[in-house]
């Protein structure tokens, strides 16, 4: 079995206008930056993007927004992006803001083959409008549906040609649950290794969830908030 493709262009060959994409990452951390660049180059439009954040003006999903390729964003936090805010306030962009745990767990539900989850997040707020509420053991929960995405696009540290993935540090974030949730899952990795090099006891995403994998070159890994302390 060999899931390796030549690069991001081949990986996204059948992504078309109007599709729903999941994109891993938390801010700039663990972002599938090579595949996003390929989507910008390809120019597919009217995309629905499910991703925790919307990038910054000149990096990540911000690049897709800048080219008006996104019809709808489903995110939990979208600060730090002036173009996003402009498109939102002008009505060019449809935005669904949902709680971060709900976003993650709706991905998880899709990957576990469950149609819906129940969560207390959003009870009594505008997030609950139009949703079914169920009471369990005296507490109200919202029913939230599993996501249905055409493609999931994730970034891992290492992977093999079978699609097994390992993430590094907090660049893991949404990537494992999104990898499980796509009808087709594309993984870009910093290092493509031979089967057997990854310890089976330490695989974060088993290869069964991954359909295409490629090694990206020259990761920028931009830092959003560089905070340091001085050595003394």
């Amino acid at each position: 079995m060999n899931k390796v493709v030549s690069g991001a262009d081949e990986a996204i060959r059948d992504i078309e206008d109007g599709m729903t994409l999941m994109l891993g990452g938390f801010g700039m951390c663990g972002l599938p930056e090579k595949t996003i660049l390929a989507l910008v180059k390809k120019g597919v439009k009217d995309l629905t993007c499910i991703s925790n954040n919307a990038g910054v003006d000149d990096f990540g999903i911000g690049l897709l927004l800048h080219q008006h390729q996104v019809k709808k964003m489903i995110s939990s936090y979208v600060g730090e992006n002036a173009e996003f805010e402009r498109q939102l306030l002008s009505g060019e962009l449809e935005v669904e803001l949902i709680p971060q745990g709900t976003l993650a767990t709706r991905c998880m539900a899709a990957g576990y083959g469950m149609p819906a989850i129940f969560t207390p997040a959003g009870i009594g707020t505008e997030v609950a409008i139009g949703k079914e509420v169920r009471n369990f053991n005296g507490k109200d929960y919202l029913m939230e549906m599993a996501f249905d995405a055409d493609f999931a696009i994730v970034k891992a540290w290492k992977g093999d040609r079978l699609g097994n993935l390992v993430y590094r540090s907090t660049a893991r974030n949404f990537n494992p649950v999104m990898a499980m949730a796509g009808k087709v899952t594309i993984a870009e990795v910093e290092e493509l290794v031979e089967p057997g090099e990854l310890d089976p006891d330490n695989i974060h995403t088993p290869g069964i969830y991954v359909h295409r994998i490629f090694q990206g070159e020259n990761y920028e890994k931009r830092i959003e908030q560089r905070t340091v302390r001085k050595k003394n």
Partner: peptide
């Protein structure tokens, strides 16, 4: 201001 709730609602 619309930045989103992040993890606060959860």
């Amino acid at each position: 201001m619309v930045k989103g709730m992040g993890g606060a609602m959860d």
